[in-house]
Design a protein around this nucleic acid. Sequence first.
DNA 1: GCTTTAATTTGAATAACTAAAAATTGGTAT
DNA 2: ATACCAATTTTTAGTTATTCAAATTAAAGC
Lengths: 146, 146
Amino acid sequence: MTTDAREMLASAGLRITAPRVTVIDALADHPHAAADAVFAKVSETLPRTSLQAVYNVLGDLTARGLARRIEPAGSPALYELRVGDNHHHLVCHVCGTVVDVDCVTGHAPCLTPSDDHGFAIAEAEVTFWGVCTACREAAVDTAPAQ
Amino acid sequence: MTTDAREMLASAGLRITAPRVTVIDALADHPHAAADAVFAKVSETLPRTSLQAVYNVLGDLTARGLARRIEPAGSPALYELRVGDNHHHLVCHVCGTVVDVDCVTGHAPCLTPSDDHGFAIAEAEVTFWGVCTACREAAVDTAPAQ
DNA sequence: GCTTTAATTTGAATAACTAAAAATTGGTAT
DNA sequence: ATACCAATTTTTAGTTATTCAAATTAAAGC
């Protein structure tokens, strides 16, 4: 895992540093993690790392195309290493869990609007909202008796 | 316009107050406005209104289904009065302008993911990203000479 | 016109993120 | 190996968007 992180950084022309390698490892283990979750994970193995450094690294990774940043409504920004395939997301309204969904029709842009209003359209971002299995089961358990 | 606002509030069982009517009028004039833009607009005609009141009203309208809240990445929350038709949005990467786009395939949920991962899916939210005409023209004007 | 309950104001707190100067470190050249 | 320099990280602050809660005010039924 560490090797991959180093290769990723090198191929993007970024210096290989402990915080960067550790952030990438954390994202590899926990896709769709927010900055503070990444910080918590990184702190386990590299406790001297600052939250600011994590923000810097996530920003750098995103700017170089090594990571993708998503911002579901009501959630802080989440990061993932799966880039370049225009996949989408399915978010649980209750617990916020995010899972990947392959592109609806194949490749970017996977959809075209009925009217582009003169915009030069670059991409279509799709977010499916629903309730995950765990939250549905929890709801049944706590439902009022009929 | 004022009449419509009053009717909307009444039909939702909300008290008719000056801040609420004015917020609704502001949204009718400026769809996709953020809270501070609504506050600025409301302040013109009702200068004693607090920003907090605007947040309260926007929250109430959203909770009762009179308004819809969208949160494009990198933008504060935006509000619009067009609700219940599952339309989508086209956002300019440069200036943030938002325009409405009719639902891609007709009615909610307008899309189905390739794999629902066990989620009970309620809706599909589509955000198209591109560059609007004005920003494209501005880019040409300031482009470096070849 | 009262009374009750909802709404608004006022004042404060918080989360998520950005900014900038100072200290440190990685990678290259010697 | 060592030193250098620019990139990175730390430290410290600051900002933006938003929420919370107590006290005041106002809407609508009686």
